[in-house]
């Protein structure tokens, strides 16, 4: 018998007298926390990420200000003109490593946990571009912010690759002392666009 058949047979044998019917209690919902966008901002900042709030008209200026003199890469359909930025067309990892910053949009923001989720559509780009550069500028629209994890799960398409980002890269591997910035972007700057 193949390993597959052996394992499946062993699983079935182990469960011969076990009923597969189990009542799975529904996961509880977090209580209403009021202003979701304010909570989102507070919780993102808790991770020592930087948050700037602005309206649509000021967005380009705010992003340019955050980037300053840094070189940057953008996804193919960012929907925002950034002077001097390289549009990703399949850059190699080594090429990305030579670029200082990346600007992307996001798919959803989660207020309870201060998380942004990228589903890597053309306004966010390939996974590699938001990973290798050291500064990630992520534009989140206020209308994209949801209350909690279950709301995000319901919105997201599992067929797409997803990256959930909660603050900058971090480690607590040395004496459980949290340090921001290991392999991922050492700085996360969230630009929250809303009225």
């Amino acid at each position: 018998m193949s390993a597959r058949d052996d394992i499946l047979a062993a699983v079935r044998a182990a469960l011969t007298d076990v009923s597969p019917a189990v009542a799975v209690p529904e996961a509880p919902r977090a209580p209403d926390r009021g202003d979701l966008v304010a909570l989102f901002v507070e919780r993102v900042e808790d991770y020592r990420a930087v948050v700037t709030r602005c309206n649509e008209a000021d967005l380009a200026g705010v992003v340019a200000g955050v980037l300053g003199e840094r070189s940057s890469v953008v996804p193919p359909a960012l929907g925002l003109e950034i002077a001097g930025s390289v549009v990703d067309d399949g850059l190699s990892a080594a090429e990305l490593d030579a670029i200082d910053a990346v600007v992307t949009r996001a798919r959803v923001g989660i207020a309870e946990t201060g998380t942004i989720v990228l589903d890597h559509q053309p306004d966010q780009g390939r996974r590699a571009i938001s990973l290798v550069p050291d500064l990630h500028v992520c534009i989140v629209d206020a209308t994209q912010v949801v209350a909690d994890v279950p709301d995000a799960i319901a919105l997201l398409d599992p067929a797409r690759p997803l990256t959930w980002i909660s603050g900058p890269s971090a480690t607590s591997d040395i004496e459980l002392d949290r340090v921001e910035g290991v392999h991922g972007p050492r700085t996360l700057h969230v630009v929250l666009v809303g009225p």
Binding site: D46, A128, P161, L162, S166
Partner: peptide, 24 residues
């Protein structure tokens, strides 16, 4: 994350389903 690192959410969670053409 709350049980493990004691955070509301860990910095990065990646999900993928097989191969995504042109990405990864």
């Amino acid at each position: 994350p709350r049980s493990s690192t004691g955070e509301r959410m860990n910095p990065y969670t990646s999900t993928w389903s097989g191969v995504t053409p042109g990405d990864g």
